[in-house]
Simulated scan of single mutants.
Amino acid sequence: MAPNQTLTLAHAPVGAPGVAAGFYQLSQRFAAALCSAAAAGMFLQAHGESRGEASRAAFHQGIVMCCSLLGVALLAGGLDWLREARDRKRRVPPS
């Protein structure tokens, strides 16, 4: 959570810290609602199967979802890191 907060608020305009904080809170709530709905959907989808199979299927789907979201987060972080490095390189005058 701390890196997301830092990245979000680092790009805020100097005169609008409230807007950045509001957007940050909105994104947290949206992500929490989306993940809660996805987790509930996985368990409800597996409800029709036998008890052991339902647990395994829901666990498997949860692991796949978490790994997918982790991959997306790592990709987004890597792209942001590359963009920041490119911008820093452009700002430094050649010696």
Rank of each mutant, 00 (worst) to 15 (best):
V92A: 13
A32L: 08
V72K: 03
L34H: 10
G52H: 06
M65F: 15
F59G: 13
Q5V: 14
R29D: 01
E53V: 11
Q5C: 05
D87F: 02
G15N: 07
A57V: 07
A38G: 09
L74W: 08
P94Q: 10
A40T: 06
T8R: 02
W81C: 12
V19H: 02
R88F: 07
L79Q: 10
G78M: 03
L69H: 03
A38H: 04
F23G: 11
A58E: 04
G71D: 03
P17R: 00
A16L: 07
M42T: 07
G77F: 06
G77T: 04
L7E: 13
G77Y: 01
A58P: 07
R29H: 05
L79Y: 09
Q45T: 10
R86I: 01
Q5F: 12
A2R: 13
R83A: 14
G18E: 11
C66V: 15
S27G: 01
A58G: 09
A2Q: 11
A39Q: 08
Y24E: 08
A21T: 08
G52Y: 07
A33Y: 02
A39H: 09
M65I: 03
A85V: 03
E84Y: 09
F43Q: 08
G48A: 13
A33T: 09
A40Y: 04
Y24F: 11
V92N: 05
A58M: 09
A76E: 01
H60C: 12
A46Y: 00
A21G: 00
R86W: 06
L82K: 13
A73C: 11
A39M: 14
P17D: 05
P94M: 12
G15S: 10
R83S: 11
F23K: 05
D80K: 12
G52F: 04
G71P: 06
G71S: 07
T6P: 00
